[in-house]
Design a protein around this nucleic acid. Structure first.
Lengths: 231, 231
DNA sequence: CACATATGATAGTATTACTATCACATTAAA
DNA sequence: TTTAATGTGATAGTAATACTATCATATGTG
């Protein structure tokens, strides 16, 4: 069985829906490859147009600018993540087990359910590590937020927070813990790869160190039910 | 008593030392104001030159580009933070008390020791919240790291990690916990101000919520000595 | 067949991110 | 005190970036 999932995106993210045309899908596909390869700062619509054999003007018909395109790509990833989360944790009664699954999902260690022809999720995941916070770390974050551009990210955060609360209904910071988890997955990966002295994973061959660290962090916080003693 | 501290910066961070001239200090002062006001993306050397009554070319004599200037400003802040940390935790024997002091320092709740005429630390702190990760979230992070541009940040991280280890010598992830703390101070502030649903601090008047969350998180992780039970 | 829509082709503008040159003022060295 | 070195201002210029506008053509739809 091969399922094909179409993720419905907020129309504010684009000028013309890239999923509805060959060119649009090509823009998505090649922008992922190119941002992954040269980084978001050096990525331009001109280079992208050359790469896919179209013109700058045509790309501007789909996306207002490259920042919006990046926001689109990451919104897609968060939506996809939430789908995955819901699917994988379905019928898993224990909140603890569900949290462990979330950790695995966020560190990209779960098999995928659907196929997408033009979206390379592995590269998109690498982009999230490197560029994941750039969509909202701007002066126009409030306006973008009003347009619900970050809704997928906030939904994912809220869903994880909800599971934290199931695990321990008294934990007072479920959403902050959830956003901490989401950010730190990427940051610890990034640090491990690029600034390893900021982490403790220097000699690991794989990324299981990040996983263990976060698992320990999350469960420690959630289990520590008492208020902080000022001992 | 009013102490004047001169922070010695890595010469790779600049072309000409901005501390050594009136124009240089003016560049530092006004770039802080301007980046704080309009954000790093919209900030240009041309605008800065107009603001301080000099020319673009003159600013390029001090800094290779605006990215380097931002890296400089944040390197300064991390160095300053480490000075503060050493001073404030001096003669405080209890690691627990020192950790609480670190939290207060990082959330900018400790009085300053030194005066700087041209550096507005409060604005610089705001810049760290918004732009703090941009110096290293680039494709040239490895090269910049080889030039030790991030040494102040890594030193601060290592020092905090050292105190974690004093508190609990068996804790396996001191550096990752330290970098998590450093990043999350800024992110939780940023989220609280701009994307509040990613946090639990919506109704607080001040920032003590961030402080309490991080304190709980850090001590929970450090206190949870046992390996994770797979219960 | 008429009409709307998507794309390509081309052009053009304002801004950004620099680099280069020369003149002048100040300071330091001979 | 002259000479030399240094820092700054003024001006110019270039390549790339980030767009916007216009028109022709192809393709599909009613």
């Amino acid at each position: 069985m091969e399922l094909q999932l179409q993720i419905k995106m907020n129309p504010k993210l684009f000028l013309r829906d890239p999923e509805q045309s060959v060119l649009g899908r090509s823009i998505i596909q090649h922008s992922i490859n190119m941002i992954h390869k040269i980084g978001f700062e050096d990525f331009t619509f001109k280079k992208l147009a050359q790469e896919i054999g179209t013109t700058e003007a045509s790309i501007y018909r789909y996306f207002e600018n490259k920042h919006r395109l990046l926001t689109y790509l990451l919104a897609w990833l968060w939506t996809w993540m939430e789908y995955q989360l819901v699917y994988h944790t379905n019928n898993v009664p224990s909140p603890e087990a569900r949290i462990r699954l979330i950790l695995k999902l966020l560190t990209f260690q779960l098999p995928d359910l659907f196929t997408f022809q033009h979206i390379d999720r592995s590269r998109l995941f690498q982009i999230a590590i490197m560029e994941g916070s750039k969509p909202y770390l701007t002066k126009h974050v409030t306006e973008d937020n009003k347009n619900h551009l970050f809704k997928p990210y906030k939904d994912l955060c809220a869903r994880i927070a909800g599971i934290f609360i199931e695990y321990n209904p008294d934990y007072p910071y479920p959403r902050s813990l959830s956003s901490t988890l989401l950010e730190m997955v990427h940051y610890q990966y990034f640090f491990r790869n690029n600034l390893p002295s900021l982490t403790d994973f220097g000699k690991d061959k794989d990324y299981s160190g990040v996983n263990r660290f976060l698992e320990h962090l999350i469960f420690s916080a959630l289990k520590n039910k008492g208020t902080l003693s000022k001992k």
